[in-house]
């Protein structure tokens, strides 16, 4: 151990190294959020700033009284998106992990990531083309005779279309963390459990799931957050019945800033609740294991 590298120098260099990033994040992330927080308690006005005094809770009142449907719908869509991503993403991660060669694993991973190198908007647009009434899927169904000529399924502008778009958009955020935790997973544990007479399901629930839990949690958070705040997907694939909170916040930035700010705060509150639940679940799990 080098004597000169005392705890003090380490502390000093640690602070120094963290300082620029912390300053950047405080200045350009936290401070702006404080502004939104303050705005959410102000009164709307038709002035240049869009807000005025006095301080009031009326934006929150309206958000919960008038927009409750939208809040609940956003939460529901985000939860479903997360769940579907988990159900689809877990097997994919498993599939990638169990390729026999490093090259095979990389190719499998590559095929997941690659579609995401095209722009998010362009990908969502591609779904518009696929789901449209005169689009690829309806055309195909008519071609093979499932639908009669002139008949079509209405797929766009439904909640299903929005869910599909969100799952499509955020699936890699689920696959990658699960894959990362599976990569560290030692499969000889499965072998050992089998040798000791554990059945497959037992192995899965008692060994594999707990060991990959950090990946599942990370993936779920990474999917849930952008899904609940999504703006582009409901706008492009949804209709009147799929109005979500993100669209509303964007709209209210132009027309009613305190309400937009209050909706932002409520959305962040929901994210926070989700995080607390996850953190609690994770601690409980680690206690069980420990």
């Amino acid at each position: 151990m080098a004597m000169w590298l005392t705890a003090r120098t380490r502390k000093y260099s640690g602070v120094l190294l963290a300082l620029p990033s912390v300053l950047w994040l405080v200045l350009f992330f936290l401070l702006p959020l404080v502004i939104v927080f303050v705005f959410s308690f102000m009164t709307r006005s038709t002035s240049v700033t869009g807000v005025t005094l006095p301080f009031t809770l009326s934006s929150y009142e309206r958000a919960f009284n008038v927009f409750d449907v939208i809040l609940i719908r956003s939460l529901r869509i985000a939860l479903f998106t997360t769940l579907i991503c988990l159900v689809i993403g877990y097997p994919i991660a498993f599939y990638i992990r169990t390729r026999k060669t490093v090259l095979g694993r990389n190719i499998a991973l590559f095929l997941i990531i690659l579609p995401f190198w095209t722009n998010f908007l362009v990908r969502t647009y591609a779904w518009q083309v696929l789901l449209s009434e005169n689009g690829t899927i309806n055309g195909f169904l008519r071609g093979i005779g499932i639908l009669a000529q002139g008949e079509s399924l209405q797929m766009l502008q439904t909640e299903g279309a929005v869910l599909l778009g969100l799952v499509y958009g955020y699936l890699p955020f689920m696959v990658l963390p699960i894959y990362a935790s599976l990569r560290r997973f030692d499969f000889r544990l499965v072998e050992a459990a089998n040798d000791l007479g554990a059945r497959d399901l037992q192995v899965f629930w008692r060994i594999i799931v707990p060991m990959t839990l950090p990946g599942i949690i990370a993936g779920s958070i990474l999917v849930f957050i952008p899904a609940i705040g999504s703006f582009v997907t409901p706008d492009m694939l949804g209709g009147t019945k799929t109005l979500m909170i993100g669209t509303l916040i964007g709209d209210k930035f132009e027309r009613d800033r305190p309400l937009g700010a209050a909706l932002s705060m409520i959305m962040m509150g929901m994210v926070l609740v989700a995080l607390v639940i996850y953190a609690w679940g994770m601690r409980k799990e680690s206690q069980n294991n420990g």
Partner: peptide, 21 residues
């Protein structure tokens, strides 16, 4: 119509929410 704009905004919000149910 200056601040009366908010009457329209609130009515419109209500409209969009009711038809989104």
């Amino acid at each position: 119509i200056q601040d009366a704009e908010f009457i329209y905004a609130d009515a419109w919000d209500e409209f969009r929410i009711i038809i989104s149910r």
